[in-house]
Computed example of a mutant assay.
Amino acid sequence: MTWTRRSIAIALVGGVVVLAIAGGGLYLELGQGPDRAALSAVQDDPNVIVTHTVGGHLVHSGTVSNDTTGIVLYPGGLVTPESYVPTAAEIAVRDDVAVVIPKMPYNLAILDVDRAGTARDAAPEIRDWYVAGHSLGGVAACRYAVGEPDEVEGIVLFASYCDRDGSDADLRALSVLATEDEVLDREAERRNRELFPAEARIVEIDGMNHAQFGAYGSQRGDGTAKIDNEAARNQVAIEVVVWLEQQ
């Protein structure tokens, strides 16, 4: 085969395209985070049990039983599931709650909205389940809850909103927002509140930004946090546990 300048150029361009696609796919697979220091703190906590599986992570404190409340937490877009282990741990140590953080294709929950259905297999003894999600993961979680209202007790949104009508669904609902969040589309969040169950509780954590719902570092375009990461996760956990106990 004789290589002309044109054929060499075409081959080089084709190679660049292949590398770009492969690199993009690798970036999506790797995702953002986690914060290793935050993960180490969880690992050093004798009150927290983290089980890592092929399908994700199970976080709890003490024995998981029929009385344990389960939460499937969908990660934010392009964020690794490990990045939510510290937040899940804060929730678990405060009550009899087990949190499952599933892995998502290319770290995008929106590509596997129904993942909660199989994620619950991580703790089959649990009877009462909720689905939660951060940012884009919250949109995916809401789609699951609205589509499968008999499978979960309710939904928890972290810096997110619903894009499917669940206003008439028999679901408990909690939305946790942050005052310094500049990533969330505030206008869309307010507009879409009418799609949330009518009795939903909506709270806003003062001083917190978008990225602090997880532990994966800063996020482009986000606001400057006025509280530290641990304080933010603590407050998120308190809001979730207080709300769960009100049922």
Rank of each mutant, 00 (worst) to 15 (best):
W3E: 12
R6Y: 07
S7K: 15
I8P: 10
A9T: 15
I10T: 14
I10Q: 15
V13G: 15
G14S: 13
G15P: 05
V17D: 09
V18C: 03
V18M: 04
A20E: 06
G25P: 09
Y27G: 11
G31V: 07
G31I: 08
Q32F: 05
G33Y: 01
D35P: 09
R36H: 08
A37L: 02
A41Q: 13
A41V: 09
D45Y: 02
P46M: 02
N47Y: 07
V48H: 01
H52V: 12
H52F: 08
G55D: 15
G56S: 08
V59F: 00
H60Q: 12
G62S: 11
G62W: 10
V64Q: 05
S65I: 09
D67I: 04
T68E: 06
I71K: 13
G76A: 11
T80I: 06
P81Q: 14
Y84F: 14
Y84G: 13
A88W: 02
A88E: 08
A89N: 13
A89H: 12
A89R: 10
A92R: 15
D96I: 06
V97K: 10
V99H: 14
K103N: 15
N107H: 00
N107F: 00
L108V: 11
A109N: 04
A109P: 02
A109R: 07
D112C: 02
V113W: 05
D114M: 07
R115I: 07
G117C: 04
T118Q: 14
A119V: 08
R120M: 14
R120L: 09
A122K: 09
A122D: 13
Y130E: 04
G133N: 06
H134I: 10
S135M: 04
S135C: 06
L136T: 12
G137Q: 10
G137W: 03
G138Y: 05
A140T: 10
C142D: 00
C142A: 07
R143C: 00
A145Q: 07
A145F: 00
D150M: 08
I155A: 15
I155R: 01
V156F: 01
L157W: 11
S160E: 06
Y161Q: 13
C162V: 03
C162G: 02
D163H: 02
R164C: 01
R164L: 03
G166A: 00
S167M: 06
A169M: 02
D170C: 02
D170N: 14
R172Y: 00
R172G: 09
V176D: 10
A178M: 05
E180R: 15
E189K: 08
E189G: 04
R191T: 11
R193Y: 01
R193F: 01
F196T: 11
F196C: 11
P197M: 06
P197H: 08
A198E: 14
R201F: 00
E204N: 06
I205R: 04
D206C: 05
G207N: 05
G207C: 02
N209C: 08
H210L: 08
H210I: 07
F213T: 03
G214I: 00
G217T: 05
G221K: 03
D222S: 04
D222I: 03
D228I: 09
N229G: 15
A231E: 14
A232P: 12
R233T: 11
R233H: 09
R233F: 01
N234Q: 15
N234Y: 09
Q235H: 09
A237M: 14
A237F: 11
A237W: 12
I238C: 04
E239G: 05
Q246A: 15
Q246M: 04
